[in-house]
Computed example of a mutant assay.
Amino acid sequence: MSLNLLPVFAVGLAGSVHCVGMCGGIVGALSGVAQRRVIPIVPGNAGALPLAPAGEALLRVLAYNAGRIGSYMVAGALAAGMASGAAGLARIAHWQGLAYLLANVMLVALGLYLMDLWRGLTYVEAAGNVLWRRILPLLKYLLPMDTLPKAFALGGLWGWVPCGMVYSVLLTAMLSGSAAGGAAVMLAFGAGTLPLLLALGLAGARLRAALQRRGARTACGLLVLAFGMLGIARYAGGLQHGWLDALCVGMP
């Protein structure tokens, strides 16, 4: 099945308001580490922390996000590879169409989740705790996050945090039919989340508070919801193929 990566990128971009809550504290801490390493030189202002050097803060945030997106790509490759193998062994002719439908249903669920209208994805996230409980003890070896390798490794581990949004896109990655295709889907998704998390790492808590406002989450949720609804309509045959193909994650 041919997959369009543009809508996957857009889902990551819109869904990154959720990443603000999941990763915002970690990304902010990366800048904070650099801040604490700078010695204040302004007399009479010892109680205030100076801003971190922009280059150092950017490198730490980039390292963290490189690790995070790398773990997404590994998960996408594993999911797509296993799904492709299982489909071939079972010789299921229409599994791709059903997986396509489920992936778009999950996008609808994600849109509602971002708008705080339905929290059903929390049950999906709870299932991911089985793996996360095994990974969590490893975090103690990465604290404090005072080097670039530690930031990268922390991002790699944090990419496995139970997240309904990531699980939704993993279903799309399964449609690619190959490990390389699955990794490409998750790379596009991770790249979509990158701009906001980079800005968050450099701008700090003020941007985080603005992005958690209901209006911002509603607008992003509506965009993700629209992608899911378009995909479902395409699956049902309610839309003609044409330029709208570019707005669907794949064609059943």
Rank of each mutant, 00 (worst) to 15 (best):
L196G: 09
G159W: 02
T193I: 14
A203I: 14
G159M: 02
L187S: 12
C163W: 04
P162M: 01
R213L: 08
A180K: 10
G215L: 02
A216K: 00
A203D: 05
V166H: 12
M186I: 08
M165F: 14
A199L: 15
L171Y: 00
G204H: 09
L171E: 01
L171G: 12
A173F: 03
G159Q: 00
L198P: 13
R213D: 05
A179E: 01
L197F: 09
L187A: 15
L197M: 15
A210G: 06
G177Y: 03
M186N: 05
G182P: 02
L194Q: 13
V169R: 05
L207H: 13
A183L: 10
G164K: 00
A209N: 09
V161Q: 10
A188V: 05
Q212M: 15
R213K: 15
R214C: 00
Y167K: 01
A191Q: 02
L171S: 08
L170W: 06
L200T: 11
P195A: 10
G159E: 05
L198N: 09
L196E: 08
M165H: 08
G181S: 09
R217F: 00
R213V: 05
S178M: 03
G177N: 01
A173E: 03
L194E: 08
L187M: 14
L175Q: 06
A210K: 11
G190A: 10
R213N: 07
T193E: 07
V169C: 04
A188W: 02
A173G: 09
L211N: 04
G155M: 00
W160T: 01
M186H: 11
R208N: 09
P195M: 08
G215T: 13
G201V: 08
S178Y: 07
W160L: 12
R217M: 08
M186T: 04
